[in-house]
Design a protein around this nucleic acid. Structure first.
Lengths: 179, 179
DNA sequence: ACTCAATTGTAGCGACTGCTACACTTGTAG
DNA sequence: CTACAAGTGTAGCAGTCGCTACAATTGAGT
Protein backbone atom coordinates (compact mmCIF):
# COMPACT_ATOMS: atom_id res chain seq x y z
CA UNK A 1 0.00 0.00 0.00
CA UNK A 2 1.73 3.10 -1.21
CA UNK A 3 1.22 6.23 0.89
CA UNK A 4 -0.79 7.85 -1.94
CA UNK A 5 1.49 10.56 -3.15
CA UNK A 6 -0.38 13.82 -3.50
CA UNK A 7 0.09 17.12 -5.23
CA UNK A 8 -1.82 20.32 -5.74
CA UNK A 9 -3.49 18.78 -8.76
CA UNK A 10 -4.72 15.67 -7.00
CA UNK A 11 -5.83 17.63 -3.94
CA UNK A 12 -7.75 20.40 -5.65
CA UNK A 13 -10.79 18.36 -6.78
CA UNK A 14 -11.43 17.11 -3.26
CA UNK A 15 -10.83 20.56 -1.82
CA UNK A 16 -13.20 22.11 -4.35
CA UNK A 17 -15.89 19.56 -3.51
CA UNK A 18 -15.53 20.40 0.16
CA UNK A 19 -15.72 24.12 -0.51
CA UNK A 20 -18.78 23.72 -2.73
CA UNK A 21 -20.48 21.89 0.10
CA UNK A 22 -19.42 24.06 3.02
CA UNK A 23 -18.83 27.48 1.54
CA UNK A 24 -15.72 29.54 1.23
CA UNK A 25 -16.11 31.99 4.07
CA UNK A 26 -15.39 29.80 7.06
CA UNK A 27 -13.03 27.22 5.70
CA UNK A 28 -10.14 26.06 7.84
CA UNK A 29 -7.24 23.81 7.11
CA UNK A 30 -8.04 20.81 9.25
CA UNK A 31 -11.54 20.07 7.91
CA UNK A 32 -10.30 20.70 4.37
CA UNK A 33 -7.44 18.29 4.91
CA UNK A 34 -9.74 15.65 6.32
CA UNK A 35 -12.03 15.97 3.29
CA UNK A 36 -9.04 15.54 1.01
CA UNK A 37 -7.69 12.57 2.93
CA UNK A 38 -4.60 14.31 4.19
CA UNK A 39 -3.47 16.60 6.99
CA UNK A 40 -3.28 20.32 7.51
CA UNK A 41 0.45 19.83 7.62
CA UNK A 42 0.42 18.60 4.01
CA UNK A 43 -1.86 21.35 2.73
CA UNK A 44 0.65 23.90 3.96
CA UNK A 45 3.45 21.82 2.48
CA UNK A 46 1.87 21.71 -0.97
CA UNK A 47 0.45 25.23 -1.12
CA UNK A 48 2.77 27.23 1.13
CA UNK A 49 0.10 28.87 3.22
CA UNK A 50 -3.64 29.17 3.45
CA UNK A 51 -3.92 32.25 1.24
CA UNK A 52 -2.09 30.52 -1.58
CA UNK A 53 -4.31 27.49 -1.16
CA UNK A 54 -7.43 29.63 -1.46
CA UNK A 55 -6.02 31.41 -4.49
CA UNK A 56 -5.31 28.09 -6.21
CA UNK A 57 -8.74 26.88 -5.23
CA UNK A 58 -10.44 29.95 -6.69
CA UNK A 59 -8.65 29.51 -9.97
CA UNK A 60 -9.61 25.86 -10.08
CA UNK A 61 -13.22 26.68 -9.22
CA UNK A 62 -13.38 29.25 -11.99
CA UNK A 63 -12.40 26.48 -14.36
CA UNK A 64 -15.01 23.98 -13.27
CA UNK A 65 -17.57 26.78 -13.18
CA UNK A 66 -16.99 27.40 -16.87
CA UNK A 67 -17.36 23.70 -17.54
CA UNK A 68 -20.56 23.51 -15.52
CA UNK A 69 -21.92 26.45 -17.47
CA UNK A 70 -21.31 24.72 -20.79
CA UNK A 71 -22.84 21.50 -19.54
CA UNK A 72 -25.96 22.93 -17.93
CA UNK A 73 -27.13 25.50 -20.44
CA UNK A 74 -29.01 24.65 -23.62
CA UNK A 75 -27.40 25.24 -26.96
CA UNK A 76 -28.63 27.56 -29.67
CA UNK A 77 -29.78 31.16 -29.68
CA UNK A 78 -32.65 32.35 -27.55
CA UNK A 79 -35.73 33.94 -29.04
CA UNK A 80 -35.34 37.18 -27.12
CA UNK A 81 -33.14 38.90 -24.57
CA UNK A 82 -35.76 38.34 -21.93
CA UNK A 83 -36.15 34.67 -22.79
CA UNK A 84 -32.39 34.27 -22.52
CA UNK A 85 -32.37 35.83 -19.08
CA UNK A 86 -35.25 33.59 -18.05
CA UNK A 87 -33.33 30.54 -19.18
CA UNK A 88 -30.24 31.49 -17.22
CA UNK A 89 -32.33 32.23 -14.17
CA UNK A 90 -34.15 28.94 -14.46
CA UNK A 91 -30.99 26.90 -14.85
CA UNK A 92 -29.20 28.62 -11.98
CA UNK A 93 -32.30 28.12 -9.86
CA UNK A 94 -32.02 24.34 -10.01
CA UNK A 95 -30.85 22.68 -6.79
CA UNK A 96 -27.70 21.42 -8.46
CA UNK A 97 -26.56 25.00 -8.78
CA UNK A 98 -27.16 25.98 -5.18
CA UNK A 99 -23.63 25.12 -3.99
CA UNK A 100 -22.20 27.21 -6.77
CA UNK A 101 -24.38 30.16 -5.87
CA UNK A 102 -23.49 30.02 -2.21
CA UNK A 103 -19.88 30.00 -3.24
CA UNK A 104 -20.52 32.87 -5.63
CA UNK A 105 -21.86 35.18 -2.94
CA UNK A 106 -18.97 34.28 -0.68
CA UNK A 107 -16.67 35.35 -3.50
CA UNK A 108 -18.55 38.60 -4.08
CA UNK A 109 -18.32 39.38 -0.38
CA UNK A 110 -14.60 38.69 -0.55
CA UNK A 111 -14.34 41.11 -3.47
CA UNK A 112 -16.13 43.80 -1.51
CA UNK A 113 -13.56 43.21 1.22
CA UNK A 114 -10.86 44.08 -1.30
CA UNK A 115 -9.32 40.63 -1.73
CA UNK A 116 -7.40 40.62 -5.03
CA UNK A 117 -7.61 36.85 -5.51
CA UNK A 118 -11.36 36.92 -5.12
CA UNK A 119 -11.59 39.86 -7.54
CA UNK A 120 -9.65 38.02 -10.20
CA UNK A 121 -11.71 34.90 -9.82
CA UNK A 122 -15.04 36.69 -9.79
CA UNK A 123 -14.11 38.80 -12.78
CA UNK A 124 -13.13 35.71 -14.74
CA UNK A 125 -16.38 33.98 -13.87
CA UNK A 126 -18.43 37.03 -14.86
CA UNK A 127 -16.59 37.27 -18.15
CA UNK A 128 -17.32 33.63 -18.88
CA UNK A 129 -21.01 34.20 -18.27
CA UNK A 130 -20.97 37.41 -20.32
CA UNK A 131 -19.39 35.54 -23.22
CA UNK A 132 -21.94 32.79 -22.98
CA UNK A 133 -24.81 35.29 -22.94
CA UNK A 134 -23.37 37.13 -25.92
CA UNK A 135 -23.12 33.87 -27.84
CA UNK A 136 -26.72 32.92 -27.13
CA UNK A 137 -28.50 36.16 -27.88
CA UNK A 138 -31.04 36.01 -30.68
CA UNK A 139 -29.25 36.17 -34.01
CA UNK A 140 -31.44 39.12 -34.83
CA UNK A 141 -30.23 41.15 -31.86
CA UNK A 142 -29.37 44.64 -33.10
CA UNK A 143 -26.46 45.13 -30.68
CA UNK A 144 -25.16 41.91 -29.13
CA UNK A 145 -22.38 43.61 -27.17
CA UNK A 146 -24.71 46.00 -25.40
CA UNK A 147 -27.45 43.40 -25.26
CA UNK A 148 -25.28 40.90 -23.44
CA UNK A 149 -24.40 43.50 -20.83
CA UNK A 150 -28.02 44.44 -20.33
CA UNK A 151 -29.01 40.80 -19.96
CA UNK A 152 -26.15 40.10 -17.57
CA UNK A 153 -26.95 43.07 -15.34
CA UNK A 154 -30.58 42.03 -15.07
CA UNK A 155 -29.65 38.39 -14.49
CA UNK A 156 -27.23 39.21 -11.71
CA UNK A 157 -29.69 41.55 -10.07
CA UNK A 158 -32.40 38.92 -10.20
CA UNK A 159 -30.04 36.29 -8.80
CA UNK A 160 -29.14 38.54 -5.91
CA UNK A 161 -32.77 39.31 -5.18
CA UNK A 162 -33.50 35.61 -5.27
CA UNK A 163 -30.66 34.96 -2.85
CA UNK A 164 -32.21 37.33 -0.33
CA UNK A 165 -35.68 35.87 -0.70
CA UNK A 166 -37.08 38.44 -3.10
CA UNK A 167 -37.30 36.34 -6.23
CA UNK A 168 -40.60 38.00 -7.07
CA UNK A 169 -38.87 41.34 -7.49
CA UNK A 170 -36.17 39.82 -9.63
CA UNK A 171 -38.58 38.02 -11.89
CA UNK A 172 -40.68 41.13 -12.36
CA UNK A 173 -37.46 42.98 -13.08
CA UNK A 174 -36.86 40.85 -16.16
CA UNK A 175 -39.42 43.08 -17.80
CA UNK A 176 -36.59 45.57 -18.14
CA UNK A 177 -35.41 43.51 -21.08
CA UNK A 178 -38.58 44.00 -23.09
CA UNK A 179 -38.05 46.62 -25.71
CA UNK B 1 -17.06 58.61 37.92
CA UNK B 2 -19.95 56.29 37.38
CA UNK B 3 -19.19 52.98 35.69
CA UNK B 4 -21.11 54.08 32.60
CA UNK B 5 -24.20 51.93 32.72
CA UNK B 6 -24.83 50.32 29.35
CA UNK B 7 -27.70 48.62 27.58
CA UNK B 8 -28.42 47.19 24.19
CA UNK B 9 -29.52 50.59 23.01
CA UNK B 10 -26.38 52.41 24.07
CA UNK B 11 -24.14 49.64 22.77
CA UNK B 12 -25.68 49.17 19.34
CA UNK B 13 -24.41 52.41 17.73
CA UNK B 14 -20.81 51.64 18.65
CA UNK B 15 -21.21 48.03 17.58
CA UNK B 16 -22.74 49.11 14.28
CA UNK B 17 -19.88 51.51 13.64
CA UNK B 18 -17.40 48.74 14.28
CA UNK B 19 -19.23 46.37 11.95
CA UNK B 20 -19.46 49.00 9.22
CA UNK B 21 -15.73 49.42 9.43
CA UNK B 22 -14.66 45.80 9.75
CA UNK B 23 -17.40 43.83 8.05
CA UNK B 24 -19.86 41.34 9.38
CA UNK B 25 -18.29 38.06 8.33
CA UNK B 26 -15.39 37.81 10.75
CA UNK B 27 -16.63 39.63 13.80
CA UNK B 28 -15.81 38.31 17.24
CA UNK B 29 -16.88 39.37 20.66
CA UNK B 30 -13.66 40.74 22.09
CA UNK B 31 -12.86 43.28 19.33
CA UNK B 32 -16.51 44.31 19.25
CA UNK B 33 -16.49 44.80 23.00
CA UNK B 34 -13.32 46.84 22.83
CA UNK B 35 -14.84 49.08 20.15
CA UNK B 36 -17.87 49.61 22.33
CA UNK B 37 -15.82 50.30 25.46
CA UNK B 38 -16.88 47.19 27.29
CA UNK B 39 -15.99 43.52 27.57
CA UNK B 40 -17.07 40.34 25.81
CA UNK B 41 -18.50 39.34 29.16
CA UNK B 42 -20.93 42.27 29.03
CA UNK B 43 -21.95 41.72 25.43
CA UNK B 44 -23.07 38.23 26.35
CA UNK B 45 -24.77 39.63 29.43
CA UNK B 46 -26.78 42.17 27.46
CA UNK B 47 -27.59 40.11 24.38
CA UNK B 48 -27.57 36.54 25.67
CA UNK B 49 -25.28 35.09 23.05
CA UNK B 50 -23.49 36.07 19.90
CA UNK B 51 -26.28 35.07 17.52
CA UNK B 52 -28.76 37.27 19.34
CA UNK B 53 -26.27 40.12 19.26
CA UNK B 54 -25.87 39.77 15.49
CA UNK B 55 -29.63 39.60 15.03
CA UNK B 56 -30.11 42.80 17.03
CA UNK B 57 -27.28 44.40 15.10
CA UNK B 58 -28.81 43.50 11.74
CA UNK B 59 -32.12 45.00 12.73
CA UNK B 60 -30.41 48.15 13.91
CA UNK B 61 -28.36 48.36 10.72
CA UNK B 62 -31.47 48.01 8.59
CA UNK B 63 -32.81 51.06 10.40
CA UNK B 64 -29.80 53.27 9.89
CA UNK B 65 -29.59 52.05 6.29
CA UNK B 66 -33.05 53.40 5.65
CA UNK B 67 -32.05 56.69 7.25
CA UNK B 68 -28.87 56.89 5.18
CA UNK B 69 -30.91 56.27 2.07
CA UNK B 70 -33.24 59.15 2.84
CA UNK B 71 -30.33 61.46 3.61
CA UNK B 72 -28.14 60.65 0.65
CA UNK B 73 -30.59 60.54 -2.23
CA UNK B 74 -31.97 63.60 -3.94
CA UNK B 75 -35.63 64.43 -3.68
CA UNK B 76 -38.08 64.62 -6.50
CA UNK B 77 -38.89 62.35 -9.42
CA UNK B 78 -36.28 61.32 -11.96
CA UNK B 79 -36.67 62.09 -15.63
CA UNK B 80 -36.48 58.48 -16.70
CA UNK B 81 -36.07 54.97 -15.34
CA UNK B 82 -32.52 54.89 -16.58
CA UNK B 83 -31.68 58.25 -15.05
CA UNK B 84 -33.06 57.02 -11.74
CA UNK B 85 -30.87 53.95 -11.86
CA UNK B 86 -27.88 56.11 -12.73
CA UNK B 87 -28.57 58.31 -9.73
CA UNK B 88 -28.76 55.38 -7.34
CA UNK B 89 -25.61 53.90 -8.81
CA UNK B 90 -23.78 57.20 -8.51
CA UNK B 91 -24.81 57.79 -4.92
CA UNK B 92 -23.95 54.27 -3.82
CA UNK B 93 -20.63 54.61 -5.59
CA UNK B 94 -19.49 57.39 -3.33
CA UNK B 95 -16.81 56.44 -0.79
CA UNK B 96 -19.15 57.15 2.09
CA UNK B 97 -21.27 54.24 0.97
CA UNK B 98 -18.43 51.75 0.71
CA UNK B 99 -18.79 50.43 4.28
CA UNK B 100 -22.47 49.86 3.70
CA UNK B 101 -21.81 47.97 0.52
CA UNK B 102 -19.22 45.73 2.09
CA UNK B 103 -21.70 44.97 4.78
CA UNK B 104 -24.39 44.38 2.18
CA UNK B 105 -22.45 41.65 0.42
CA UNK B 106 -21.64 40.02 3.72
CA UNK B 107 -25.35 39.94 4.39
CA UNK B 108 -26.17 38.52 0.97
CA UNK B 109 -23.56 35.80 1.50
CA UNK B 110 -25.15 35.05 4.85
CA UNK B 111 -28.53 34.75 3.13
CA UNK B 112 -27.11 32.30 0.61
CA UNK B 113 -25.90 30.30 3.59
CA UNK B 114 -29.48 30.07 4.78
CA UNK B 115 -29.26 32.33 7.82
CA UNK B 116 -32.78 33.45 8.71
CA UNK B 117 -31.70 36.64 10.49
CA UNK B 118 -29.68 37.73 7.49
CA UNK B 119 -32.61 36.93 5.18
CA UNK B 120 -34.99 39.07 7.20
CA UNK B 121 -32.57 41.97 7.32
CA UNK B 122 -31.68 41.81 3.64
CA UNK B 123 -35.30 41.54 2.61
CA UNK B 124 -36.19 44.58 4.67
CA UNK B 125 -33.36 46.59 3.17
CA UNK B 126 -34.33 45.60 -0.36
CA UNK B 127 -37.93 46.55 0.31
CA UNK B 128 -36.83 49.96 1.55
CA UNK B 129 -34.85 50.56 -1.61
CA UNK B 130 -37.70 49.26 -3.77
CA UNK B 131 -40.08 51.67 -2.09
CA UNK B 132 -37.71 54.54 -2.58
CA UNK B 133 -37.28 53.70 -6.27
CA UNK B 134 -41.03 53.44 -6.75
CA UNK B 135 -41.48 56.85 -5.15
CA UNK B 136 -38.91 58.47 -7.40
CA UNK B 137 -39.87 57.12 -10.78
CA UNK B 138 -40.90 59.72 -13.34
CA UNK B 139 -44.46 60.78 -12.68
CA UNK B 140 -45.21 59.84 -16.25
CA UNK B 141 -44.12 56.22 -15.76
CA UNK B 142 -46.80 53.97 -17.23
CA UNK B 143 -46.37 51.20 -14.65
CA UNK B 144 -44.55 52.29 -11.49
CA UNK B 145 -44.87 48.91 -9.77
CA UNK B 146 -43.25 46.99 -12.61
CA UNK B 147 -40.91 49.86 -13.36
CA UNK B 148 -39.51 49.94 -9.85
CA UNK B 149 -38.77 46.22 -10.01
CA UNK B 150 -37.05 46.58 -13.36
CA UNK B 151 -34.95 49.46 -12.07
CA UNK B 152 -34.09 47.62 -8.87
CA UNK B 153 -33.00 44.46 -10.67
CA UNK B 154 -30.73 46.43 -12.98
CA UNK B 155 -29.36 48.49 -10.10
CA UNK B 156 -28.54 45.46 -8.01
CA UNK B 157 -26.94 43.70 -10.94
CA UNK B 158 -24.82 46.74 -11.70
CA UNK B 159 -23.82 47.07 -8.04
CA UNK B 160 -22.72 43.45 -7.95
CA UNK B 161 -20.74 43.82 -11.15
CA UNK B 162 -19.11 46.91 -9.71
CA UNK B 163 -18.24 45.01 -6.55
CA UNK B 164 -16.37 42.42 -8.58
CA UNK B 165 -14.52 44.99 -10.65
CA UNK B 166 -16.74 44.92 -13.71
CA UNK B 167 -18.41 48.30 -13.39
CA UNK B 168 -18.18 48.73 -17.15
CA UNK B 169 -20.54 45.80 -17.68
CA UNK B 170 -22.95 47.13 -15.09
CA UNK B 171 -23.01 50.63 -16.54
CA UNK B 172 -23.54 49.32 -20.05
CA UNK B 173 -26.29 47.15 -18.62
CA UNK B 174 -28.27 50.23 -17.62
CA UNK B 175 -29.22 50.41 -21.29
CA UNK B 176 -31.73 47.69 -20.45
CA UNK B 177 -33.89 50.44 -18.98
CA UNK B 178 -34.23 52.37 -22.21
CA UNK B 179 -37.56 51.67 -23.75
C1' DA C 1 24.62 -0.11 -1.50
C1' DC C 2 24.59 4.86 -0.85
C1' DT C 3 23.12 9.51 -1.18
C1' DC C 4 20.00 12.94 -1.33
C1' DA C 5 15.83 15.30 -1.96
C1' DA C 6 10.88 14.86 -1.81
C1' DT C 7 7.27 13.72 1.02
C1' DT C 8 4.83 12.56 5.31
C1' DG C 9 3.51 11.82 10.56
C1' DT C 10 3.56 13.49 15.29
C1' DA C 11 3.38 16.85 18.40
C1' DG C 12 2.91 21.18 19.73
C1' DC C 13 3.16 26.50 19.87
C1' DG C 14 0.88 30.90 20.79
C1' DA C 15 -3.15 33.24 19.67
C1' DC C 16 -7.76 33.33 19.34
C1' DT C 17 -12.93 31.68 19.83
C1' DG C 18 -17.68 31.82 22.48
C1' DC C 19 -18.91 31.42 26.84
C1' DT C 20 -19.05 30.74 32.09
C1' DA C 21 -18.03 30.68 37.32
C1' DC C 22 -17.46 33.58 40.93
C1' DA C 23 -16.90 37.50 43.44
C1' DC C 24 -17.84 42.17 43.68
C1' DT C 25 -20.06 46.73 43.41
C1' DT C 26 -23.69 49.45 42.54
C1' DG C 27 -28.60 51.77 42.59
C1' DT C 28 -33.07 51.26 44.40
C1' DA C 29 -37.10 49.68 47.13
C1' DG C 30 -38.87 48.54 51.65
C1' DC D 1 -30.32 50.52 57.41
C1' DT D 2 -31.18 46.53 54.94
C1' DA D 3 -32.30 43.45 51.29
C1' DC D 4 -32.07 42.38 46.68
C1' DA D 5 -31.56 42.48 41.87
C1' DA D 6 -28.96 44.59 38.18
C1' DG D 7 -24.72 45.22 36.47
C1' DT D 8 -19.58 44.53 36.15
C1' DG D 9 -14.41 42.84 36.47
C1' DT D 10 -11.22 38.94 36.65
C1' DA D 11 -9.99 34.66 35.44
C1' DG D 12 -10.36 30.78 33.02
C1' DC D 13 -12.37 26.67 30.33
C1' DA D 14 -12.37 23.74 26.30
C1' DG D 15 -11.92 24.18 21.73
C1' DT D 16 -10.05 25.86 17.09
C1' DC D 17 -6.93 28.57 14.32
C1' DG D 18 -2.62 28.81 11.01
C1' DC D 19 1.64 27.25 11.16
C1' DT D 20 6.23 24.99 12.48
C1' DA D 21 10.08 21.94 14.50
C1' DC D 22 11.73 17.57 14.15
C1' DA D 23 12.18 13.10 12.77
C1' DA D 24 10.98 9.43 9.89
C1' DT D 25 10.06 7.26 5.45
C1' DT D 26 10.10 6.95 0.65
C1' DG D 27 11.85 6.67 -4.11
C1' DA D 28 15.04 7.86 -7.69
C1' DG D 29 19.71 8.51 -9.32
C1' DT D 30 24.52 7.00 -9.08
Amino acid sequence: MSPARMSRETLLPALAAHVLEHGLADISLRPMAKAAGTSDRMLIYHFGNKDALVAALLEYLAGIYAAALDAAFPDGPAISRKALAETVLEVTGQPAFAPFLRLWWDIVAGCADGNADYLASAGAMADVLLGWVEDHLPTSDPDPVAGARAVLAVIEGAMMLRAIGRSDIGEAGLAALES
